[in-house]
Design a protein around this nucleic acid. Structure first.
Lengths: 96, 96
DNA sequence: TATCTATTTGGCAATATAGCCAAATAGATA
DNA sequence: TATCTATTTGGCTATATTGCCAAATAGATA
């Protein structure tokens, strides 16, 4: 009852928390266009590769992205492709 | 160019961050039904009233809610009423 | 005015997050 | 095999967040 509601809210909060960082939002937007390797994302973001790797593993942990190793590169892509609609409401908050 | 993109991402991240907490998601869901005073929300959440008040001021700061004082109570309501749709995508992340 | 209720604010301790460097791991290639 | 590239992990420090208590503020009422 209350605890079911509570755990649902916690689960949602975790997803939002995982998204709530500029670099991670950038990654999500970039992955909307298609899969990207860590090195490409790192170059675009301009942070240390270890930092980007940790952002990616956090997104993976949250169920937002999945990874696939090919050769010595790891490619990430979105696990759920509905992020574009997702931001209509966030934008409304920012516009008013 | 890059900095415009960057500041847009930061703005979005702030909104998401403000939402990314179970109690604050509960508040948002509750306010979808209509305005609520701090004392009612506090009772429903079961935390200290100062804690709830801080959650509310954080949501206000983020532009998600607005407040109105009437008598000695303060009523909060959503500033943007599109939160219901907002979670379709989050749910997808959680379902798969 | 004194006091009661509702709310906010300040301050603190515990915990979580961010980002860097260095080291470890893994696949590719000389 | 030795080495190069790509990535992850461990560890550290700085900073941010959370939630409580106590105190301050403000309106309502005795």
């Amino acid at each position: 009852m209350l605890s079911i509601k509570q755990s649902k809210l916690s689960a949602r909060a975790k997803v939002l928390k995982a998204m709530a960082h500029p670099s991670r939002l950038f990654i999500i937007e970039e992955l909307e266009k298609g899969e990207r390797c860590v090195c490409d994302l790192t170059e675009m973001i301009g942070a240390d590769i270890s930092t980007v790797s940790k952002h990616l593993s956090l997104l993976k942990q949250a169920g937002i992205v999945i990874d696939e190793k090919r050769g010595n590169q790891v490619f990430y892509r979105l696990r759920v492709p509905c992020i574009i609609n997702f931001f209509g409401c966030v934008e409304k908050v920012l516009e008013l």
